[in-house]
């Protein structure tokens, strides 16, 4: 079963307007590489030169921010759901 990835409006310029992608990989890093193959430019929007996720991008696996799991090396399993959201404040 593939991993479903929800893409925010601002990144859909890399996905031909698709809101949801499906990809594979055993970590978030591998998933991003897999998606980059079909959606050029996506990786650069998510990952910096240091190989880590950009500060203002939040990636969630099953609703949990990967920064508190294993970062970009967070393991993925088939059927996981991944979402990407811009960082937003409240208050």
């Amino acid at each position: 079963m593939p991993i479903e990835v929800r893409v925010p409006t601002v990144l859909r310029k890399h996905t031909a307007g698709e809101k949801t992608l499906s990809g594979s990989g055993s970590t978030v890093r591998e998933l991003v590489e897999d998606l980059e193959g079909r959606n050029p430019g996506l990786r650069q929007s998510l990952v910096g030169d240091d190989g880590q996720l950009h500060r203002f991008v939040n990636v969630y696996v099953n609703d949990e921010d990967v920064r508190y799991l294993g970062g970009i090396e967070t393991p993925l399993s088939d059927g996981d759901s991944v979402s990407i959201l811009p960082a937003v404040a409240g208050g």
Binding site: T9, V10, S45, F56
Partner: peptide
């Protein structure tokens, strides 16, 4: 989606 809007990811804000 309206709340996240079209802002660029590099214009995000972490308090």
């Amino acid at each position: 989606e309206l709340v996240y809007g079209l802002r660029n990811l590099d214009e995000g804000f972490v308090p």
